[in-house]
Computed example of a mutant assay.
Amino acid sequence: MPAGETGFDDVTFDLISVQYHSLKAGHDYGQYVRDARNAGLDDVASFFEDVMAQDSERAKRCHELLAKLQKS
Rank of each mutant, 00 (worst) to 15 (best):
Y32L: 15
D10C: 06
Y20M: 07
Q31D: 15
A59W: 05
D43A: 12
M52G: 07
A39C: 06
V11C: 05
S46F: 00
D35F: 11
A59N: 13
V11P: 03
H63C: 01
A3I: 00
A36H: 01
V11E: 14
V44T: 03
L66Q: 01
L23I: 01
L23D: 00
D55T: 06
D42L: 09
E64A: 09
F47K: 11
H27L: 13
L23Y: 01
A67D: 04
L69V: 05
G4A: 08
D50G: 08
K24N: 12
I16H: 13
Q19L: 06
L65H: 10
F13P: 06
S17E: 10
T12E: 15
K71N: 03
G7P: 01
D35P: 04
L66C: 00
H63R: 02
A67R: 00
E57I: 10
G7C: 05
A39M: 15
E5M: 04
D10G: 00
A25C: 04
R58V: 14
E57C: 01
E64M: 12
D10W: 01
G26A: 07
M52E: 04
G40K: 11
A25R: 06
V51E: 03
Y29K: 13
Q19H: 06
D28H: 14
H27M: 13
G40N: 12
V33L: 01
K71Q: 02
F48V: 09
A36S: 11
D28W: 13
E5F: 12
V51W: 02
D55W: 06
D50E: 05
Q19D: 02
G40V: 14
Y32G: 08
V51I: 13
F47C: 02
L65C: 01
Q19S: 10
S72M: 13
Q19F: 00
R37P: 03
A39Y: 06
T6Y: 02
L15T: 07
M1P: 03
S17P: 03
G26H: 08
D35I: 11
G7H: 01
Y32F: 09
L23P: 05
V33H: 03
Q19P: 00
T6H: 01
D28Y: 12
H21F: 09
Q31F: 14
S17W: 06
V44H: 01
L15R: 08
A36K: 02
L66Y: 09
R34K: 13
F13D: 11
D10E: 05
D55S: 10
E5L: 11
Q70L: 09
